[in-house]
């Protein structure tokens, strides 16, 4: 099985639209969405949730109010401003460091596993689709990404391909997204920050020994930037496998929950995505 991850230096570059399009085109595959902060792939794909699994990925402190004598010692040592003067813990700000536990004379404070999100096992027809959502204000998206990938590994067997909608950015979440992949496709935009975002994320992939490919979205917005991206890729021996033009009709299609693959007016985008896929297969 070949595993491809789609990533982007920043959010909103069109990553999920590309993956959703490929989901409609590629046969015998499994899908996963590891953009756990803002998962979008499930929105465009007609799926049925088979199982919703709670995920506890962080620890937070809890005060047993029956034991608390309001000595404020916890409040005094907390450096995250997570304990109020009246000794109430704000779960959104608690880092789970445990400093308050150490100073509490009554042993009224303990650390508890905190629900930080859910993993969803879904089916699209007969194909596996695994996705997740991080809880509001929660930390630990990297762990949730790793959990999704673990669940996928348990499920997939005979499939030819695993397509993963990755996380945006360059941090640990992205690394968690791309580990184990055969290749990653970086979806970028032809904007002033597009090239630097691309460079940073491409270096991350390089560093972990994962072959990268580039798809330039809205390439006609700024031809100069597009040229610079192409030049950069050439120097790095990275293939630009897709160039998608600025096309308001894509947004129109999305509004009707359609991908470019199922909209007659978007034949030109469809053929670009198919050619992207063919090149990806050819080069891996």
């Amino acid at each position: 099985m070949k595993q491809f991850v789609f990533i982007s230096g920043k959010g909103g570059t069109g990553k999920s639209t590309v993956v959703a399009s490929l989901a409609k085109y590629v046969n015998n595959k499994a899908l996963a969405d590891v953009d756990v902060d803002a998962p979008n792939l499930h929105i465009l794909l007609d799926h049925e949730v088979v199982e919703k699994i709670p995920f506890k990925g962080a620890k937070i402190a809890k005060i047993d109010q029956s034991k608390c004598t309001n000595c404020h010692k916890g409040y005094e040592v907390c450096r995250f401003d997570a304990i109020s003067k009246d000794d109430i813990i704000n779960p959104l700000k608690c880092e789970g460091c445990g400093a308050c536990l150490l100073v509490c004379p009554e042993n009224a404070i303990t650390l508890h596993d905190e629900l930080t999100g859910h993993v969803y096992q879904s089916k699209i027809n007969e194909e596996h689709f695994t996705h997740a959502l991080l809880a509001v204000g929660a930390e630990g998206s990297g762990k949730l990404v790793a959990e999704v990938k673990k669940k996928v590994k348990e499920l997939v067997k005979e499939e030819d391909y695993l397509l993963i909608d990755g996380s945006p950015g360059i941090g640990c979440v992205v690394i968690a997204s791309i580990t184990g992949a055969d290749a990653c496709v970086i979806v970028t935009e032809a904007t002033k920050s597009g090239l630097s975002d691309l460079q940073r994320v491409q270096q991350v992939a390089d560093h972990f020994g994962i072959k990268s490919f580039v798809c330039i979205n809205k390439y006609d917005l700024n031809i100069d930037v597009t040229k610079k991206i192409e030049e950069y890729c050439k120097n790095k021996n990275v293939s630009v496998i897709g160039k998608i033009p600025f096309e308001p009709l894509i947004v129109k299609a999305l509004q009707q929950f359609k991908t470019p693959m199922d909209d007659d007016k978007l034949g030109h985008i469809k053929s670009e995505i198919i050619s992207l896929w063919n090149q990806l297969i050819k080069e891996t």
Partner: peptide, 27 residues
């Protein structure tokens, strides 16, 4: 910062008003 992480909580918690920017797609 984008998202709904604790970083965002720290950024906005004492603001007078929040402007949420979105785009008209299902995403």
């Amino acid at each position: 910062a984008p998202g709904a992480s604790c970083t965002v909580v720290s950024t906005i918690e004492d603001c007078d008003y929040c402007v949420l920017v979105t785009e008209p797609t299902p995403f």
